[in-house]
Write a protein that binds this DNA or RNA. Structure first.
Lengths: 205, 205
DNA sequence: GTCTATATCGGGATAGAC
DNA sequence: GTCTATCCCGATATAGAC
């Protein structure tokens, strides 16, 4: 039992890494087994087939996302504080895990139905953060803002530079340090843009 | 000869579509052949192997990108006009081709070295648009703005919502029309954010 | 639960006729 | 240039011993 749980964990850690870097089609079961330091057959013993292992990984990752980010409680702080916190957490969560959004994008091409169904179930629009955030803006600024558009803008600004990190590093910067600094600075720079957007937003009558 | 050129074109069109949707590993040579309506052997006759075909596709796509977007001449218009034009062109170019950035992101995970070398060669920072854009801002506003950061912001806001289009459609909207409208509106909404960012940017002394 | 050995199959690639 | 037939390898998956 102890051993079993441990092996399972080893497999999951390795699988997350390999699937993320290579995508579903590019991942090799023997590579996962090697990285986990276990025999290839055990993958099938624990997870039956490649697809099932993959689905398990994705489930774990998306749960982590919801519980880490969209459960952010800003009830006692104002919406500006919320934007700042969300951006900080978002960057810290993804900066070393660009493979996760890559993985979503990869599979959005290959398995759209499955992945879309999964996201529907996550019910992101009804998470604590979104509800509180929206209410807080309404109360303080006395206007309706397009919360969908704001979230799309915020996540675009946060995520794309991380997803294409190596590209930015190659095109703009030379060193890894300056790229890391660039991303670190976005914890302040992105909220500035978003807050300005919200404050200046004119409601169309 | 006529026929050869035509077959080659058929293959390239099909290959672009399949590689883009499935990534390199997920793409199947027989699928490309079927989509092109030709015999599978011809793929090898024309392009020798899967990798070579893939590289050819990527070369075509990136050249198209450079000549369509980054060659945009704004010498005779001001920088605001430039932002508007760039955003419009960018969205029109990618809105039906989300597979292209997907493809870059996919392969950034699998073949980073190759793709990074390719982007270096494109030399995006020295394209007409970037040079004119930067000069135009300097002349009109009399300040140095972080052109790299501006481009990253602009492209993030333009591209991510297209890349994850189906996801946005599922989470926010119900119909395809409202999603299309959402993207169409970004031709005006993204420039607003970027222009505001540039105008309000304070140079740190 | 973990291993060795092996079945099975899909897909990239080639030979060779036309 | 285009086709049919086929090779061959690599990767998923299973059988069965321990």
């Amino acid at each position: 039992m102890e051993k079993s749980t441990n092996t399972e964990k080893l497999i999951l850690d390795a699988a997350l890494q390999v699937f993320s870097q290579k995508g579903f089609a590019g991942a090799r079961m023997h590579e996962i087994a090697d990285l986990a330091g276990i025999n290839k057959t055990l993958l099938y013993y624990y997870f039956r087939c490649k697809k099932k292992l993959f689905e398990k990984i994705f489930e774990i990752v998306s749960n982590e996302l919801i519980s880490n980010l969209f459960s952010l409680n800003i009830e006692n702080s104002n919406w500006k504080e919320g934007v700042n916190k969300f951006c900080q957490l978002y960057i810290d969560f993804f900066k070393d895990k660009r493979f996760i959004p890559q993985f979503v994008i990869n599979e959005l091409g290959e398995n759209p139905d499955w992945i879309l169904k999964h996201f529907s179930k996550l019910n992101i629009l009804n998470t604590p953060f979104l509800k509180n955030f929206s209410n807080s803006i309404k109360n303080e600024l006395n206007k309706e803002v397009p919360i969908d558009e704001i979230m799309v803008n915020m996540i675009s600004l946060l995520l794309l530079p991380i997803i294409v990190g190596p590209l930015i590093q190659t095109i703009i910067n030379q060193s890894e340090e300056s790229y890391n600094l660039f991303i670190e600075n976005r914890k302040k720079n992105v909220p500035k843009i978003i807050i300005e957007f919200i404050e200046n937003y004119k409601v169309i009558e």
